[in-house]
Amino acid sequence: MNSQNHEHEKSNVQKVSTTVLITGANRSIGLETAKQLSQRGLFVYLGSRNLAKGEAVVKELADQGFNNIKAIEIDVTNPESILAAKNIVEYEQGKLDILINNAGILGPQPQTAIETPVVDIKEVFETNFFGVINVTQAFLDLLKKSDKPRISNITSGLGSLTLHSDPNWKYYQVKAAAYGPSKSALNAYTIVLAYDLKDSNFKVNAIDPGYTATDFNAHSGPGSVESAASFIIKHTLTDENGPTGQFFSNDIEDEIGISPW
């Protein structure tokens, strides 16, 4: 049994052509994205704050035939956790091709600008904004070793200042004083990051998977996790002529889905 387990573990960390890290991937959109990328033959590190939960998910996936997904512990608010994850990826793969910054929290509800405590806003920013920066900066040197490095920052339509200022927007009434601004800040960071890497082979984009039915929103969204994951992948697995520094949304009803900032 121990030998079999060892061989199984060994098979899960084989070096492959394309390696992906998805933070917050043990459920919902992140999990579905991991599954769809795995089906395409990519090796996926399924990021989870709790390693046991992540490993339990991966075991279920393995039983379903997904054999190129490995759980990795990563808490985007904890620099030591991020460094440990980075060291694992570096040891096992030597590089990282795709980073999908998916981990995010909604924060306590409701979130009015008048009454939401600053401590609650800071907590949301720690994960949704500063956490993305923590992970991105830590993994940047491994991404630079890739021939086609991609960074996808998973955002929200609630981060669009243009849409939020439009009374005719279908989600105009949905205001969240912590969550929305955290995604606006993430969008702004994405623009600067894409600019800093514009003379390289990086593609850096903000991707809104759309209002999706998940645990995140008590399954109130009209979209499916399958559609959300497919949209993320569409705008992540781009070629050398693909866009960078863009904001794509699955809620924008046209073929490309470019959202106003």
Rank of each mutant, 00 (worst) to 15 (best):
N2F: 15
E9C: 05
K15D: 09
K15F: 04
T18W: 04
T19Q: 10
I22L: 11
G24H: 08
N26W: 09
S38D: 13
F43L: 13
L46G: 06
V58I: 11
A62F: 15
I69T: 10
I74K: 07
D75M: 02
D75I: 02
D75H: 09
V76L: 05
T77I: 10
T77P: 00
P79A: 13
A84E: 14
A85K: 05
N87M: 14
I88C: 10
G94D: 00
L96F: 07
D97T: 04
N102T: 06
I105R: 07
Q109T: 12
P110N: 12
T112K: 05
V118T: 12
T127L: 05
F130P: 00
N134H: 15
L140C: 03
D141G: 02
L143C: 06
K148T: 12
K148Q: 12
R150L: 05
I151H: 10
I151S: 07
T155L: 06
S156G: 08
L158S: 12
S160P: 00
Y171M: 11
A177S: 15
A178C: 07
P181R: 08
L186Y: 08
I191H: 13
V192Q: 13
K203R: 14
P209E: 13
T212L: 01
D215S: 13
V225Q: 01
S227V: 05
A229W: 02
D239Q: 04
E240F: 14
N241T: 12
N241W: 04
Q246H: 14
E253N: 11
I258S: 01
